[in-house]
Simulated scan of single mutants.
Amino acid sequence: MSNIPVLKPLEVLRILENLGFCDRPNLESQKLSERIGMIYSKLQYQRRSQQNCMETEGAISQAEYHIYTAICQETNLFLFHRPDTVFNDYTGDAPFHKYHNDRPRFSGAFKYKCLRSKGMIEDYEVKNTREWRLEKRFQVENGYRFVSELEPQEFKKTRGIFTLSRVGFSESCDYGLVHIAYSACGYSCGYYLLLHFNAAIWQRQVYFMSYVV
């Protein structure tokens, strides 16, 4: 996708005019121009996202923050719509795997889907060999805070803390693998999420529970 030249809307219109496709009422030409403009914008956004997913040396890429935002729009697994969301300041791999790295991360259909995305698991493994400090470059519906922003007396009142991993991308940059963990009052669980970049947005495809204690 990143090697395909993307023509600007006016360039496309000139080509269509030369071919005789724009000899129609002005209203239809205007609609055609608007449609071409929308397609052009989506292609440009996808191009930028693909480029961003490769810019991972020394920092968390913007494409990863886009995925964090997409995760936080999900309310089926966690209650992100509540106003008291708290995140760990640093990224973290699945806790269970850190202490049992001789066991496979996942299995079944989820593993099969991940293996189909070339290079994604390898990218995930490399990025999550260490912790990375997060910045406030992702969005949650009712806002969020990092642990470092809490006052000492607030720790007991939090409903729990989320920890995000770095995102592993496929070589084509259209699939991403991420882990999210949640801990509160002696309870803890985690999920691997597989996301797909579709029509200029990241969407969750499947998830796999990594642990629960």
Score class of each variant (00 low, 15 high):
Leu177Asp: 07
Gly168Asn: 02
Ala181Leu: 03
Lys8Gln: 13
Lys136Pro: 11
Lys136Gln: 15
Tyr68Asn: 03
Gln73Lys: 15
Pro9Met: 08
Phe110Ile: 13
Ala63Leu: 02
Leu194Cys: 11
Ser148Lys: 11
Ile121Trp: 10
Trp202Tyr: 04
Thr163Glu: 01
Val6Tyr: 10
Ser117Thr: 05
Phe106Leu: 13
Asn142Glu: 11
Arg103Gly: 02
Cys114Leu: 11
Gly58Ala: 06
Tyr192Glu: 13
Glu171His: 10
Cys72Asp: 00
Phe96Ile: 14
Met209Trp: 05
Ile15Val: 11
Thr163Cys: 01
Lys118Gly: 01
Tyr175Ser: 07
Gln153Arg: 08
Leu79Asp: 08
Glu135Trp: 07
Tyr112Ala: 15
Leu164Cys: 01
Ser210Ile: 07
Pro25His: 02
Ser183Met: 08
Leu134Ser: 02
Pro25Ser: 04
Ala94Thr: 08
Gln62Thr: 08
Trp132Cys: 06
Ala200Ile: 09
Cys53Tyr: 09
Phe155His: 14
Pro9Leu: 07
Ser61Thr: 01
Asp89Trp: 05
Phe87Thr: 03
Pro9Ser: 07
Thr56Leu: 06
Asp102Met: 09
Gln203Glu: 10
Leu177Ala: 05
Arg204Glu: 02
Tyr68Thr: 04
Lys42His: 14
Gly168Leu: 01
Glu125Phe: 06
Gln73Ala: 10
Leu195His: 09
His100Cys: 12
Trp202Gly: 02
Ser148Gln: 06
Glu17Ser: 08
Glu64Trp: 00
Pro9Ile: 11
Lys31Glu: 09
Arg130Ile: 12
Phe110Cys: 11
His97Lys: 12
Tyr124Met: 01
Trp202His: 03
Pro25Asn: 03
Ala199Asp: 15
Arg47Tyr: 13
Arg14Glu: 15
Glu74Lys: 05
Ser170Lys: 03
Glu64Pro: 00
Ala70Cys: 06
Tyr112Pro: 00
Ile161Asn: 00
Leu115Met: 14
Ile36His: 07
Glu131Gly: 03
Glu64Cys: 05
Ser41Ile: 10
Phe169Lys: 04
Phe162Glu: 00
Gln46Cys: 11
Ser61Cys: 09
Tyr187Asn: 12
Glu28Tyr: 06
Phe155Gln: 05
Ala59Asn: 12
Asp93Thr: 11
Met120Leu: 15
Arg103Ser: 12
Leu16Gln: 02
Leu19Ala: 12
Arg14Pro: 03
Gln44His: 06
Arg14Tyr: 07
Pro95Cys: 12
Val213Cys: 10
Glu17Leu: 02
Pro152Phe: 05
Phe169Gly: 01
Gln51Trp: 06
Glu11Asp: 15
Glu34Pro: 02
His66Thr: 07
Glu28Trp: 05
Tyr99Lys: 14
Val178Asn: 02
Glu149Arg: 06
Gly186Leu: 08
Ile71His: 00
Thr56Arg: 10
Leu43Ala: 12
Ser49Val: 14
Met38Asp: 15
Ser165Ala: 00
Pro95Thr: 09
Ala70His: 08
Gly58His: 09
Phe155Met: 06
Tyr45Pro: 00
His196Lys: 13
Met120Trp: 00
Lys127Trp: 07
Lys98Asn: 15
